[in-house]
Design a protein around this nucleic acid. Sequence first.
DNA 1: TTGCTCCTCACGTCACGTGAGGTGGC
DNA 2: TTGCTCCTCACGTCACGTGAGGTGGC
Lengths: 132, 132
Amino acid sequence: MSAELRRPGRTYTIRQLAQEFGCTSRALRFYEDKGLLFPARDGQTRVYSYKDRARLRLIVQCKRVGLALAEIREILDLYNRGDGGEAQAVRSLDACRARIRELEQRRVEIDEAIRALNIGVQRLEKQLAGAS
Amino acid sequence: MSAELRRPGRTYTIRQLAQEFGCTSRALRFYEDKGLLFPARDGQTRVYSYKDRARLRLIVQCKRVGLALAEIREILDLYNRGDGGEAQAVRSLDACRARIRELEQRRVEIDEAIRALNIGVQRLEKQLAGAS
DNA sequence: TTGCTCCTCACGTCACGTGAGGTGGC
DNA sequence: TTGCTCCTCACGTCACGTGAGGTGGC
């Protein structure tokens, strides 16, 4: 990515941002529909600012760790109201901690499932060995 | 559970099976809609046989390890065509192994997400400590 | 005129949850 | 008559994917 691409004040098309962040333009429209993004318009066409790009970056990062769009929206809303960032930090901290607990729980479930599947595999292998 | 409940030849209502296997009657109707179950009818009312109960048991076990309903249906279909169980065993083995790979991949992703979240938590805590 | 990107619906996915509205037998 | 269980639609959830059908500027 060139420095040009990150210059504040410049604008982006929907496809440019989608490619840069590895998502589809449909996803960007969807985020807008859900109130996470609100780009300017040139006629019908969406025009994304440097700030929109920053918001999208946060969205993508949060999604990567599995936060739901509704949660991400809350965090973005706090940022937009500009409480000096503190309210946003508190909310983000809550969301991160809750998500960590969920993921740790999920990991336990996955380990159990893998154990159960391995037992099943052994049983099936034995059955097939006996059948042939 | 009494021996009476497991006697072959007896029948079950939708609610009885749902309670026994910890799902809802809506779920049982859904499985039927998707071709995984096909209980008899007494007028409008569904009547589940001992075999239906065995099928449901397999469905619940497969679901617990995260197999999709479509995959479970394939396995059940093989069982129903009665290839002596071998075709079903082969298909089950494939499904189990594929699922194990998926889960191991998922575990890696979860570990990465947890690591990223912990870094975020530390950063946010530092930010809040500096702000107050 | 052809091609490209953009746009707006709107249905499909997955596994059900959740009413709404109605029925049969104690 | 009241209560209980059963039933059939059919929309809602979540994060988009995927056409369909149309537009604007090179």
